[in-house]
């Protein structure tokens, strides 16, 4: 099978995957107990108003009708209207999604930068005290749940030392909105970002570190290193070029998965640090039975991972011609 046919087939599969994913979500959310009026009943919504509202939302329709309607909407790129807020879902989600991406993206970038460097050094100095200590530290970091790391950092740096704010994304009262740079570039924002991003970075640090270390070991053991050395190339150059080349594939694959984990894990960090992100919004939406909002949030998060996986697959094929298009 040629490359082009392979890519075509993968794209087809991608579409089927998306459809199945969407259906799964739809079924899952319709099984949830309660409906979006629950939260208003204790605040005075009468039974008549409730029925009217349910009909207005189309929730009295047979499930398959709702399914077809929602699928049709989604195909036109419309996520519908939030049941609770009554605003277009997309308006609510875009801002929240950006907040989460900025937070988790920063955490991942820090984790991978440090991890790759650290891992490479550990592999380079194998069997040293540094390596052994490094492994222990890495494993300990990996053993800590996000909320635990968050609570410890919060206790030390926010409550005890008072160096960083304990919650939120910026000091309140300022100008809202503004461009990307205005929102995410200010010193105030960075100060708020520090602890939650550090929490994420600590938790996600282990994977790239250990991966980079073992890749390094593989490269150091490989026969061709000896050959290249014999050819008179400086050891460092050989190492750098080959270690880098050999580590791209596994790192890319792992990063795709890590992004997914980070998306899901953001719920915890956002809760601990009161970060106005997607994860919290999603949990709220689930609790409020706001199906369109919750589904869109799940769908977006899932899409990021599915597409990342897809890209990782293609990169794999592209970078490593030995892989058969199976």
């Amino acid at each position: 099978m040629g490359l082009r046919a392979y890519v075509a087939r993968r794209i087809l599969q991608l579409i089927v995957t998306f459809w199945a994913f969407f259906t799964l979500l739809f079924v899952l959310f319709r099984m949830m107990p309660g409906d979006p009026t629950s939260m208003f009943i204790m605040d005075g919504m009468t039974p008549e108003q409730r029925e009217q509202r349910i009909a207005e939302l189309g929730l009295d329709q047979p499930l398959y009708v709702q399914y077809v309607e929602y699928a049709r909407q989604l195909l036109t790129g419309d996520f519908g209207q939030s049941f609770i807020y009554r605003d277009p879902v997309i308006d609510i989600i875009v801002v929240r999604f950006m907040n989460t991406i900025v937070l988790m993206g920063t955490a991942l970038v820090i984790a991978y930068l440090i991890g790759i460097t650290f891992g490479a050094i550990m592999g380079w100095w194998r069997d040293s005290r540094f390596e052994r200590g490094g492994i222990v530290v890495t494993l300990i970091a990996r053993s800590s749940p996000e909320f635990w790391v968050g609570i410890v950092l919060l206790s030390v740096f926010a409550f005890w030392l008072g160096w960083f704010p304990s919650s939120g994304m910026r000091t309140t009262g300022g100008e809202l909105g503004g461009g990307f740079v205005a929102r995410y570039g200010s010193a105030d924002f960075l100060r708020h970002l520090f602890l939650p991003a550090l929490t994420g970075a600590i938790v996600y640090l282990a994977t790239p570190t250990l991966l980079m270390r073992s890749t390094m070991l593989d490269v150091l053991n490989a026969d061709f290193i000896e050959i290249k050395k014999a050819e008179g190339l400086p050891e460092r150059t050989v190492l750098y070029k080959h270690a880098a080349r050999n580590s791209i594939l596994p790192i890319v694959t792992v990063m795709a998965i890590a992004t997914g984990a980070a998306m899901g894990g953001s719920v915890v960090i956002e809760t601990v640090f009161n970060w106005p992100g997607m994860g919290r919004e999603m949990v709220n939406a689930v609790n409020n039975n706001d199906y369109p909002l919750a589904m869109a949030a799940f769908f977006l998060m899932g899409s990021v991972v599915i597409i990342m996986n897809f890209i990782a697959d293609l990169t794999y094929v592209y970078l490593d011609p030995r892989v058969e298009y199976e």
């Binding site: 309660g34 409906d35 629950s38 939260m39 009943i41 609790n287």
Partner: peptide, 10 residues
Amino acid sequence: FGAHVDKAVV
């Protein structure tokens, strides 16, 4: 809360 209200009140 939502599930509770749904089960008991509704």
